[in-house]
Design a protein around this nucleic acid. Structure first.
Lengths: 223, 223
DNA sequence: TGCAAATTGTGACGTATTTCACAAACATGG
DNA sequence: CCATGTTTGTGAAATACGTCACAATTTGCA
């Protein structure tokens, strides 16, 4: 009923909050001061009622007849998502993907600070990834005693994923963004979000061949 | 009622099919010939009934009292997802992320062949990304007349995303895996799957601060 | 062969999420 | 200060998705 939260917030709602936030930041750059839920729908494709309901989990944000104050809404969403202040994050896996992730400017912009990078490959340990030294995986627990990251990004091969996960949890990590194509076994108090490119491509591939309007865009085999 | 499809298959089901497939490939390597839905649940965390229902959208796969033949199930899922034969894919954006994606061995393994890479950055055009030459974005339509990719991976900055999308669609692409943090406007016959690291991290960040069992893992400020 | 054990496929039920639709709140202009 | 137009916040309805529970099928063994 008031600001914080009542019971449970649907995960899809949280996902969309991040979307709104991105959009609001753009609007602020464009000096737009107010928006309506209808405008949000036009821009983001999210149904206007959906937008309002999403916000309603966290209190009242708009003025009837007017809309939402861009700056205030932006500020309140960052607070809800707890990205209003810097958060330490550790990365495990300094391969191509890990490297790309650390270099992704959006992380900093959204207050996720990669404070340490780990790998178990001797050839990599000691080298620099952007401005961070790649550390021995064995040091993880020790390093995180001071780094105190509670979020980790896991970008290691499937075979190593579960072992590393156990290490992470032992080191105090309670939220893992998993890029390894395997399902991690974790205690109930640890949150995992899986990202799987192959899964996404597979879904696209399926639609390609099963949706009528599409087939015959390129004829099956003209020659 | 029979093999192909009845009406609509839930997207979550398709996502899980990709998960099962990964698992089945491992099982084949381990020379396991048969599995039950209960074993799938143990290994993947997906409820056994869910697994069976997912399959039921596409026909009957198992034998009561026995289970599922690993090889056959694997084969049928690849056919359902249309990854039983190589599919051409084009990549736009040869930055860090794009580079990591092309190099990801899982793509080849699942029959997604990156056949061309495009970028609009003159400094990059002509250089090689793995074994592919980076081509000028302006050549996209022309190149895809012969490449005939219907799937594209979009790994460009937000600002360029919509323009590139329009180009892609003009070139015959009907499925886009979008890594740009923006919502693309596409005609109804084009499918888009969005991948947003920030969204995922934001969800984790929210849980971190709102789930009771977790707080006090690291005391608020001991010193 | 007949019975017990295992496991599938699926209708019925339950939960989660989205969409609808409308009263209440506010703004504007005469 | 009232009438009109806009837009919010939210119960209620609709849809989508997940889980349960059990009849039906197969196996293996006495």
């Amino acid at each position: 009923m008031t600001y914080p939260v009542n019971g449970k917030v649907p995960v899809p709602t949280l996902e969309r909050l991040a979307t709104y936030l991105r959009y609001l930041i753009d609007l602020e750059h464009d000096k737009v001061s107010t928006i309506s839920s209808g405008e949000v729908e036009e821009q983001t494709g999210v149904n206007a009622a959906q937008f309002r309901k999403d916000l309603s989990y966290f209190g009242e944000f708009g003025k009837p007849g007017v809309g939402y104050d861009v700056a205030e809404l932006q500020s309140r969403i960052t607070k809800i998502l707890k990205i209003d202040q810097a958060q330490p994050v550790i990365l495990v896996g300094a391969g191509n993907l890990g490297s790309a992730l650390v270099g992704y400017p959006g992380l900093q912009e959204h207050q996720f600070n990669v404070v340490a990078v780990f790998d178990n490959n001797v050839a990599k340990i000691g080298r620099k990834l952007w401005n961070l030294e790649i550390l021995d995986l064995d040091l993880l627990a020790e390093v995180n005693k001071t780094a105190k990251a509670r979020i980790a990004i896991l970008a290691v091969p499937r075979g190593a994923a579960q072992t590393v996960t156990d290490t992470l949890i032992g080191a105090g990590v309670v939220a893992i963004l998993n890029f390894a194509p395997t399902s991690l076994k974790v205690p109930k108090n640890v949150f995992v979000r899986n990202v799987s490119f192959l899964q996404e491509l597979a879904v696209l591939s399926y639609h390609l061949s099963h949706d009528e309007e599409i087939s015959a865009e390129f004829p099956p085999s003209p020659e």
